[in-house]
Amino acid sequence: MFELLDPAPDFTLPATGDATITLSDMRPSPVVLFFYPRDNTPGCTKEAIGFTEALAEFDALGVKIIGISKDDMASHEKFVAKKELGMPLVSDAEGDACERYGVWKEKKMYGKTFMGIERSTFLIDAEGRVAAMWRKVKVDGHVAEVLEAAKAL
C-alpha cells in the first residue's frame, strides 16, 4: 500500500469516448481519480453528477477528473450519456488498478459479504504523487472537500 506523497500507481485503461487513458500522460496536470462501485446506482450517480457540476472550478485550477470502476465500457458509455457526465470514465474490468490503489475490499450489505470497490478518491499532484486521499467516502459534501484540497496544491 502507498502513502501520501508516494508516486500514484500508473495505469493505461480504456475510457469513454473511444479513448485510452494513461495516468502518467496527464502530467503536469493534477488529477482527481475517483473510484466508485457501480454505474447508475444512487450514490455513484450523485457523486459523478457532483464532479460534473464542479468541473468548471476544477478546470480553472487545471485539474483533470477521472472516474473509475470495474463496469465495462458499454455500461460507462450509457452512464455518461444518460446523466450527461462531463468527465471520462475508465473501465478497470480486470481490477488491476483497483488492487493497486487498495480499493477492492470485502464489503457487507444486507447481511451478505462480497468483494467490491470501496468508494475512494485520490488527488494526484503535478509530479504524479498522491497529494490527498479519501477512503470510505460519503458522497454528501465530498466534491467540495476535494475541490478545497485541489485549491491547496
Rank of each mutant, 00 (worst) to 15 (best):
P9T: 00
A74F: 13
P37M: 14
K70R: 12
K82P: 03
A19T: 07
L55I: 09
K138T: 13
F58T: 01
A54V: 06
P37T: 14
F51D: 00
A56V: 11
D10G: 04
M1D: 14
G102D: 05
I49K: 11
P42G: 05
A19H: 10
V80D: 02
A97E: 07
A81G: 08
T22M: 05
V137H: 04
L153F: 08
A8W: 00
P7D: 08
S120D: 06
K151L: 01
T20H: 03
A97T: 10
I49P: 04
L4E: 05
L55Q: 12
A150G: 07
E47G: 03
A60G: 15
F11I: 00
F114Q: 09
I66V: 15
V31K: 02
Y36A: 04
D72M: 14
A131N: 07
R100H: 12
N40D: 14
E118R: 13
T121E: 04
T16E: 01
A97I: 10
K83V: 10
A60C: 10
A54K: 07
D71T: 07
I21W: 00
M87A: 14
M73D: 14
G128I: 04
P37A: 13
E148A: 09
R119W: 06
T12G: 05
K136D: 14
M115F: 12
D72I: 15
S75E: 15
V31L: 01
L55K: 13
E148Y: 00
L5P: 00
